[in-house]
Structure formats: structure tokens, C-alpha cells
């Protein structure tokens, strides 16, 4: 593997951890979308641990994951009376607010970011951590608590009626989401050598959602494959610059990802790689796709208008 290929895989695996965090929070029915912020908090905490206290990487990872998880739990407790779309709104605002505040805190390096972090992350660390995260999630899904969380994610009222505590589910959803995002953040900080306020920003959130949408929202595998797949896609789009095999240049890749995201959510709201078998009906699908692009008004089976 060339260093370039290694670095692309490393970054993709780092993001896959954050996306797994997003997956488990959403799967537990908690509409929280501050994973960019949780990632950044993990990154800052891990980075500070490495720089100030010169702790080994494994300890940095723990510190980062713990801090982000703690922050997640605090959020869950503070926002326990808020849910649904309003919770989403509030978590976005908190993420954005924390990012802007970090930019103004000189002790954290201000808008320049916190730098001088040792470049410890490599493909081994990234794949090892991602593997731990993935296996952890797969095992967790089989536990009593994991099953209860997935049940609550499908139908909160029903879950409540069979004695599942929604507050407990929420705390665990935020905690695990913070844990995984925090791990990703520490790896990211040790990959780039610095962590910036913009890493905390909501501006990163679309990326994780693209990974998750493309990968599928049903299993942790979706988060992993989605991250790797989409990250490679945008890397390939980057070469468009040379005009060799794509008509786009590299500035185009972001809006293309946005478009991919919108089309995915319309055509296949459960994500592309899900356990649900893909029933390919060529005419219907392609009409729908054309419809998305505004070229054709596809038939819809609703009776409201």
C-alpha cells in the first residue's frame, strides 16, 4: 500500500468511528446531531493529554473518549425535557456555539487551533480502534440494554410501555455516541497534529450523514462501509483537477456529495447498504431518479393532494 492509500484509509476509518457514534445515537431514537462537536471535544482532550502530560496514545484515546462521553451525558441530562426535531435543533446550536466559543478561548489556541500534537495516528491505530468500535457495537446490540435501545429507537411509546426507561436509553445513546466520536477525535488530532475550532463545527455534520446515508442506518457496518466508500469517492473526484477522467474539478466534490446525499435520502431513505434487499425495478427507479433531478414528475402513491 502506498502512503497515499494508507492515509486515505486512515482518515476514512477515523471518520467511520464518528459515524458509528452517530449511528448508535440515532438508532436509540435520540435525534441528536452534535457528533462533530463531540469529536472535537475528544480531540482537544486527547491532544491536551498528549502534549501537556505526554501520556501514551492508548491513554490519550481513553481520555478523549471519556471526556466526549461525559459531555454527551451532561447534554442528555440537561436536555431531558426536549425531544424530536426540537432536540435536533438544540444540539446543532450547542455544537455550533461550542465551536465558536472554542475559537475565542486563547488557552485552547483560539481560532488557530491547538497544535503541536504528536503525529501518532497511523493506519494500524485507526483500523485497530475502528475494529474495537465496530465489534463493541455489534456485541452491544445483542445485550439486553442494546436490544432495549434499538426497541426504543423504533417506537418509544411501545418501549416505554414494556418498562424501558427512556431517560436511561437517552443517556446511553448520548454516552456511546460521545465515546465513539471522541475516539475519532483523538485519532484525528494525532493524525493532523492539531485540532481546530472548525473541527467542532456543525459544518462537518453533513459529512457524517452522507457516510451514514450511503452506508445505511440499520447496522454499524453501514457506518464503516459508508465512510470508506464515500471517502474514496471524494478522493477520486479530487483527481478531476487534472481533467483526466472527470469533467469536474476538485472544488466540485463537495456539492456532488451534497447531491448524492439528497438523492439517496429520497430514493432509498434507509441508506444504500442495508439488510433490506434491494429490489431493482429499473424503470421505476430511473424515473424516480430523473424526477429528483426535476426532469420527470414520478408517480407517488399518496392520496393527499
Amino acid at each position: 500500500m502506498t502512503p497515499y492509500v494508507q492515509s486515505v484509509f486512515t482518515t476514512a476509518l477515523i471518520y467511520s468511528l464518528v459515524t458509528m457514534g452517530l449511528y448508535i445515537t440515532l438508532a436509540s431514537g435520540q435525534f441528536s446531531i452534535a457528533h462533530g462537536m463531540l469529536m472535537g471535544i475528544g480531540g482537544y482532550a486527547g491532544g491536551i493529554a498528549s502534549v501537556q502530560f505526554r501520556v501514551p496514545m492508548i491513554l490519550s484515546l481513553m481520555v478523549g473518549a471519556f471526556t466526549a462521553a461525559l459531555f454527551g451525558v451532561v447534554m442528555a441530562l440537561v436536555l431531558r425535557r426536549t425531544s424530536g426535531v426540537l432536540l435536533a435543533t438544540v444540539t446543532i446550536a450547542i455544537g455550533q456555539g461550542v465551536s465558536l466559543t472554542a475559537a475565542n478561548l486563547n488557552s485552547l489556541g483560539g481560532s488557530q487551533g491547538y497544535f503541536g500534537i504528536p503525529l501518532t495516528t497511523n493506519l494500524a491505530w485507526a483500523s485497530g480502534t475502528a475494529l474495537v468500535g465496530l465489534v463493541g457495537l455489534l456485541v452491544f446490540r445483542k445485550t439486553r440494554l442494546g436490544l432495549a435501545m434499538l426497541a426504543a429507537g423504533r417506537d418509544e411509546t411501545v418501549a416505554q410501555s414494556i418498562g424501558i426507561s427512556i431517560l436511561k436509553i437517552r443517556i446511553w445513546g448520548f454516552l456511546l455516541g460521545g465515546l465513539l466520536a471522541g475516539l475519532g477525535g483523538v485519532l484525528l488530532a494525532h493524525n493532523n497534529g492539531l485540532i481546530e475550532p472548525s473541527d467542532l463545527s456543525f459544518a462537518n455534520e453533513p459529512l457524517f450523514f452522507i457516510f451514514l446515508m450511503v452506508g445505511g442506518l440499520e447496522t454499524p457496518w453501514g457506518a464503516l462501509f459508508g465512510s470508506i466508500g464515500v471517502w474514496w469517492l471524494q478522493e477520486l473526484l479530487r483527481f478531476g483537477n487534472s481533467g483526466q477522467f472527470l469533467i469536474f474539478d476538485q472544488a466540485d466534490r463537495y456539492w456532488i456529495l451534497g447531491l448524492v446525499m439528497v438523492i439517496t435520502v429520497i430514493v432509498r431513505p434507509q441508506g444504500i447498504l442495508t439488510r433490506k434487499p434491494i429490489v431493482w425495478n429499473p424503470t421505476r427507479r430511473s424515473f424516480q431518479l430523473l424526477g429528483v433531478l426535476g426532469l420527470f414528475r414520478g408517480r407517488r402513491s399518496d392520496n393527499t393532494s
Partner: peptide, 18 residues
């Protein structure tokens, strides 16, 4: 609701970067 949100998020990302 999640799909709706993701769609507007995608539109936002698309518009900004375009």
C-alpha cells in the same frame, strides 16, 4: 423526520459548496 432533516442538510451542503 430524520429523512427530512438529512435531505435539508444535504441541500444546505450542496448550496454552500456550489
Amino acid at each position: 423526520t430524520l429523512s427530512m432533516f438529512v435531505a435539508t442538510l444535504g441541500v444546505s451542503y450542496f448550496l454552500e459548496n456550489l
